Simulated assay, not measured.
Amino acid sequence: MNIDLSGKRALVTGSTSGIGFATARQLAESGASVIVNGRSQEKVDSAVGRITAEFPHAQVVGSVADLAHADGCDALLSAHPEVDILINNMGIFQLQDFFEIADSEWTRFFETNVMSGIRLSRAYAPRMVAKGWGRIVFVSSESALNIPRDMVHYGFTKTAQLAVSRGLAKRLAGTGVTVNSVLPGPTLSEGVADMLKEDATASGETVEAVATRFVKTHRASSIIERAASVEEVANMIVYVSSPLASATTGAALRVDGGVVDTIA
């Protein structure tokens, strides 16, 4: 199976590290022209440099914009008014007890995790429809189905992404534009690795070993019994962004290692 995205232009939001970077890298490897997005010029430049160093012929550009705000989305859209593939990956998470989450935090999480994708999808989808082809992917989470007791505000935004994705897929029925969600489970991204470094140092274990112990303890339903790599999640995102996934739309595609204990 060969994924060839030559001639396609892709935007991956929040793509200077983690799942977003792995996705941008694989899209570039598959021949797509890629827009790397982040809030820091330094991080965007670094991400673009890493990809082009590995794939010298790749067409990769950076776009610095804080998509948690409408003006940030507007700035990105002004700079890059048309894409064929939109990966709504940008998101934030934070451990916090429900009774300590202020209204401002609910709003911040909703604006960042949900409204960023809504604003960009609303702007880019009509252009995709006009061309008769397009891919929109929301990077959600298994937390959309298994709402974390210590991150209710995060789970709420991830569930909202599923609703938006499914509804937009219906709205775009028959246009050649597909809309799907991808649901990663525990994933050993840079951010997660940073959170686990203290435990790893204290125990003398590797970060990977600590992540595996975390999964077995706190995500006991996991079938792979370890954290996924960012590349494993990106594999699914890139596939569903490709022409090969033309019959897949309105779906919630799990890359959760079997954490969600259901056959549907």
Rank of each mutant, 00 (worst) to 15 (best):
153 H>K: 02
132 G>P: 06
96 Q>G: 05
97 D>T: 01
145 L>S: 07
143 S>F: 03
115 M>Q: 15
126 P>M: 06
180 N>E: 05
180 N>I: 04
141 S>F: 07
180 N>C: 03
83 V>I: 09
170 K>P: 01
118 I>M: 11
111 E>P: 02
83 V>P: 04
155 G>Q: 05
137 V>F: 10
188 L>S: 01
177 V>T: 08
169 A>L: 00
95 L>E: 11
123 A>R: 08
89 N>Q: 10
84 D>L: 12
95 L>I: 10
152 V>N: 06
113 N>M: 07
162 L>N: 13
187 T>N: 04
109 F>L: 09
178 T>W: 00
146 N>F: 13
181 S>G: 10
107 T>P: 01
97 D>C: 01
88 N>Q: 08
171 R>T: 04
82 E>P: 11
163 A>F: 04
98 F>N: 13
168 L>T: 00
80 H>D: 10
179 V>N: 11
158 K>I: 07
81 P>A: 12
98 F>T: 12
148 P>W: 08
78 S>A: 15
178 T>F: 08
128 M>N: 10
188 L>E: 00
95 L>G: 07
88 N>K: 13
116 S>H: 15
108 R>I: 00
114 V>A: 04
103 D>F: 05
112 T>Y: 03
153 H>F: 12
94 Q>M: 06
153 H>C: 13
152 V>C: 03
102 A>N: 08
114 V>Y: 07
121 S>T: 10
187 T>R: 01
146 N>T: 07
146 N>C: 12
155 G>E: 02
161 Q>D: 11
78 S>L: 10
140 S>Y: 04
119 R>H: 00
113 N>L: 15
101 I>Q: 09
151 M>K: 12
135 R>Y: 13
127 R>P: 02
106 W>C: 02
89 N>A: 07
128 M>A: 11
156 F>D: 08
135 R>H: 06
189 S>Q: 06
173 A>L: 09
85 I>F: 07
95 L>Y: 06
88 N>G: 10
181 S>F: 08
113 N>Y: 09
145 L>D: 05
142 E>S: 09
178 T>S: 13
165 S>T: 06
114 V>S: 03
88 N>H: 14
162 L>K: 08
135 R>C: 09
166 R>C: 02
129 V>C: 04
134 G>L: 11
133 W>N: 05
111 E>Q: 15
138 F>G: 05
144 A>P: 00
130 A>H: 07
177 V>E: 01
180 N>M: 04
99 F>C: 08
189 S>A: 13
110 F>Y: 15
86 L>P: 11
90 M>E: 14
141 S>P: 10
111 E>N: 15
149 R>T: 06
126 P>E: 07
